[in-house]
Write a protein that binds this DNA or RNA. Structure first.
Lengths: 226, 226
DNA sequence: CGTACTATTGAAAAATCTCAAGCGTTGTGG
DNA sequence: CCACAACGCTTGAGATTTTTCAATAGTACG
């Protein structure tokens, strides 16, 4: 039961609770939308396998990626706080999710004050992550952003027990660029440059870290992105 | 008692509770540090008068402004969630704060579940604000950022019953630039340009909105900054 | 009155974007 | 199974935006 959702990103106590709350599963095909901005928050989701992007639609209609989520991540936390989801969630590849109904979770919150604190901490971490993104976009050069992105992705995969050196990117260059505040061509050029310098091996979706030391040095100015 | 801290940014229910919790006041001179990154979270603060900037120190020692807070704002929310403050808080002008001890607040949380939900909502809003900043830094041109900043400041002042057209900026161009991911010269140039176009009147610290319509149109691509 | 700080402005340099073309993959229908 | 269409990636060249460096000026404060 504990590993029901492979909720690797959560702490033991949280895994236990969340796992017990899972009311159903849901499959999403690549490109399928899990929910829209403005939807009332009926449930939260944990990614069992696959990956998801969260996007915001700006006033002029264009959309920007606000985050990438991997297997083990919990989705929709702002919805819990605000009663309404604010971002669109779209699967980057065929994915499987665990559904946690909001009502179930809130009922449990009343009985388990410690869980409340855990949720606070999770939200606090999301907040810090979002501020970290602002910092990166505000003060890092394009190559530093890309480096920080790769470092962050690698780190998160390693935390979940997966290979942190051979990355298979589930998102396109355009999506990376949107997240990093860059054009897709710029992202591509920087991958090529890092390849040329022997820091990365880049083959379309497959990025291999060749010189982690130099990569980290490039990204050093910020707590890793993602 | 209700208006003890002029907590104009909070809702009635929150004002009441927070007001009752204030354990003391604290004066800060311009430039004085309220707390450092890494400090254990012993208390939260509400601004009674004045204004405060929150800054993050990056790995290379440089610092970036992560937010500006005005009279009525609540400071240090991430500290509540994470037990540790992550940002430096510095007064932008002589200010007066209300101190809410963390222990007092948490004791009350146990007895008032509704307050818990209120805090969740507050954190959710902070999260959305931070994501909004990322969006702006990622996709807005320099003049749009400055416009969004002015619009946001104006809006927040109006919400608190103050004049939304004649702004007295408590922060320097460098601080605005740091927050917006721009150089101080760029901020200055854009103020000058908006002045030249009759959108703003700019006299050092004093910025007056002359053509709110066009200003909003410039900022229209994002939910206002700040 | 002078010193320190903040703001403005100009000119040149650098980073990034835009537009454009071409290539490699993948998937689909004949 | 092949051809082709669609999509994503790469690369180049020129345009644009923003930064950097430098000089000047206004303001506050001792």
């Amino acid at each position: 039961m504990r590993r029901l959702c492979e909720a690797g990103g959560l702490r033991p106590a949280e895994i236990e609770v969340v796992a017990a709350l899972v009311s159903s599963r849901r499959r999403l095909e690549r490109g399928a939308r899990l929910l829209d901005a403005g939807d009332p928050c009926a449930a939260l989701f944990a990614i069992r396998s696959g990956s998801v992007k969260s996007t915001a639609r700006m006033a002029d209609g264009r959309e920007q990626v606000t985050g990438f989520y991997l297997a083990g991540d919990l989705l929709g936390l702002e919805g819990l706080a605000l009663r309404t989801h604010l971002r669109e969630l779209v699967a980057l590849e065929d994915s499987e999710l665990c559904v946690v109904r909001r009502g179930d979770l809130e009922a449990l919150l009343g009985r388990l004050p410690r869980l409340h604190a855990e949720l606070h901490a999770l939200m606090g971490r999301e907040l810090v992550r979002a501020q970290g993104t602002s910092l990166a976009l505000g003060s890092l050069a394009a190559d530093e952003r890309v480096a920080a992105f790769v470092v962050g992705l690698s780190r998160r995969l390693r935390e979940r027990g997966r290979d942190g050196a051979a990355l298979v990117l589930p998102m396109t260059r355009a999506e990376i660029g949107s997240f990093l505040g860059l054009q897709l061509e710029t992202v591509s050029r920087i991958f090529s440059r890092l390849h040329g310098e022997g820091i990365l091996e880049v083959k379309r979706q497959v990025v291999t870290i060749r010189d982690g030391e130099r990569l980290e040095r490039l990204a050093a100015r910020c707590e890793a992105l993602l």
